[in-house]
Every structure is written in C-alpha cells, then in structure tokens.
Simulated scan of single mutants.
Amino acid sequence: MPKIKLIDVAELAGVSKSTVSQYLNGRFDYMSEKTKERIKLAVSELDYVPNPIARSLKMDKTKTIGVIVRDITGYYTSRTIRGIDDYCKTSDYNVLIYNTDVDPEIEARSLEALYQLRVDGIIIASSGKNTALIAKYIERGLPIVHFQLEHDGNEKNIIVSDYRKAAFEATEYLIKLGHQRICFMTQNFKNVKSRMDRYLGYTDALNHYQIPIEQQLIQYWQRKSGFQQPPTNILQTVNPPTAFFTQHLAITTELLTVLNEENISIPDDVSLLGFDDIPMADFFKVPITVITQNPYEIGKEATKLLLNNISNKDAPSQKIMIPCSLSKRLSCKEI
C-alpha cells in the first residue's frame, strides 16, 4: 500500500497543501467550517498519519522529550518515569525512553539519537562519564535536566533527594536505639557527590554524638563483584557492628540474601536499615526499615523544570532537593 502524503489529502479535499498543514496544526482562524470538514473527511478516508519528524523540521517544538535512565527495571526508576509521564500527559508532551544499563557508550548513543530525533529536551540519570558530551548539547541549545545522582556538582539543572539530611536522620535513629558501631555499606563515593553526601550525613551524625569514625566500618560493594568483604566475616570480627546501614537497594537485597543463607537473624543478631524502599517490604517476615525517597515527585519536578527551560531559554539554573522520609519497621532493635 503506497504511503499517503500531505498532497494526497490536499487533492482529495480540493485545497492547497498549506491549508491542510494549517488544519493539522490547529490553525483555523481564516478557515471555513466547510473547508475544515472536507479536510477532516479526506484525512479519515485516506487514513493519513502526519510524519512527526517532518513536521518538527517546520516547527520550533516537537512536543517530545527524551528520558535516559540507568536501569528501567528498578523500582526507583520506574516510579520516576511514571512521574515524568503523568506530568507530560497534562502538558501534551510525548516521552521517549532509553535504557543504558549504566553503560557510558550506550548513554552517549542515546543522547545522539534523541538529539537527531529533535526532542525538545532530555531528562537523564547520568553515568557521570559523558559530562563533556552533555555540555556540548546544552551549548547547542538543548535543555537537559539531571536526576537521581549528582556527580561533580556542576550539573546545571538537577533534581535529587536530600541525601545528606536523610543519611544523618537514619544514623541518628540507630544511635538513639543504642547502636554505636554502625557499618556503612556503600558503592565507591569519592567521585559521586550524591554518594558522598550520604557518607557525610552518616559521619555528621557520628560526630554530633561524639562517636569515633572507624574506617573498618566503611564497607564497599560493586555492582558486578558484590561485597569487597563478606558480611559474615565482618560480623565475626572481635568488635562487630550491631547494625548495617546500606546505601542502595541492590546492596540491601544482596545483604539480605547472604544473611538468610547464613541463618543470621534480623534484628536479633544484627539490625538493618536501608536506603530506598523495597517493593512489598511489608510482606517480609521482618519488614526492613528504610529511607524512602519520593521518585514520583522527582519525576514530576524534573519534567516541570525541563518544560520551563524549553519555554524559557533564559531561565536560571536550578538545583532542587526533594525531602526523604524514614519508614520505621521491624529490622532495627534497641540495644
């Protein structure tokens, strides 16, 4: 079946191409009702679908934004995307989503693809490895808003949780339960400001309550290799921690797996507090106490900021901090 073109609609309706174009773009100021009806019938009869890319070449906006995420299956990410999509629906915008699996090369290709598709702007959970490339697109006039992680602190427009305050409040909660030896389990945070902020919140609380900071209680986890030191070994030291404070949902779930395999009871043998909620946590035998972010709100605020930058190219840069909350459950006990 041959592809229907704009000229085919114009010929069937007995009008010019420009008149059909005006109709499709909602410009009816000087168009009679009869003309509109003829074009409407022609579009319906031919089953004509406008080419959005071709139309974007003639318009300032495509009414489409791109979203680049690290792991589309993650609970935090999926809730953020829902916030983005819901806000776009109320603003007549469409969303294109790209998943990178935390691969900087895929992220770079995603940025290029969205730029070629002439999206009006991009929301990105960046790997931190394409800073210069992102800056190049911003210089070309493409609005970009970051979320989830702040890397070097130079991101121009960004929406993140208030990680430092949340980590302080979580550590303080454990301290008030009597815990003095709290094992901070994290990914490498030296080059990622958002992770550093969590560490600083943890140390702020220790300093506030005059508890020494012990480097052996700072333990690292990597996405591919797991824990640098097995949690069971940590619990077998002379003076073991009484609580684990995990900084990522994947760390929490892997730690739970290890403790369960070794029949280590929570909270009888060790308390556990995690960063990021666990789906269906209330159905666990021992529901886990967590810091709860608000990814849906982050998605809405990121979209609101991006659309504002799209409509106002001179809008000042913003860093917006979204509060977290502490969901107290049964995994932390008083000692």
Score class of each variant (00 low, 15 high):
Lys40Thr: 03
Gln22Trp: 09
Met31Val: 13
Met31Asp: 12
Val9Ser: 10
Ala42Asp: 13
Val9Trp: 07
Val9Asp: 07
Glu37Leu: 09
Tyr30Ala: 08
Leu41Gly: 02
Asp8Lys: 04
Lys34Glu: 15
Ala10Val: 03
Val20Glu: 09
Thr35Leu: 12
Phe28Pro: 10
Thr19Asp: 05
Gln22Cys: 14
Leu24Ser: 04
Ser18Gln: 12
Ala10Tyr: 03
Met31Pro: 11
Asn25His: 12
Lys17Thr: 06
Val20Leu: 10
Ala10Glu: 02
Lys34Ser: 15
Ser16Gln: 02
Asn25Trp: 04
Phe28Lys: 12
Arg27Asp: 13
Arg27Ile: 12
Lys17Gln: 05
Ile7Arg: 04
Ser16Phe: 01
Gly14Cys: 08
Gly26Gln: 01
Ala13Arg: 07
Ile39Lys: 06
Leu24Glu: 05
Lys40Pro: 00
Asn25Tyr: 04
Lys40Ile: 00
Glu33Arg: 06
Lys36Cys: 09
Ile39Cys: 09
Ile39Val: 10
Ile7Leu: 06
Val9Glu: 06
Glu11Gln: 06
Val9Cys: 08
Leu41Phe: 02
Ala42Trp: 11
Tyr23Ala: 01
Leu41Thr: 06
Lys17Leu: 04
Arg38Glu: 14
Val9Ala: 08
Ser32Arg: 03
Asp29Pro: 06
Ser32Ile: 01
Asp29Leu: 14
Leu41His: 04
Val15Phe: 01
Arg27His: 10
Ser32Leu: 06
Ala42Met: 12
Val20Asp: 11
Val20Trp: 10
Tyr23His: 03
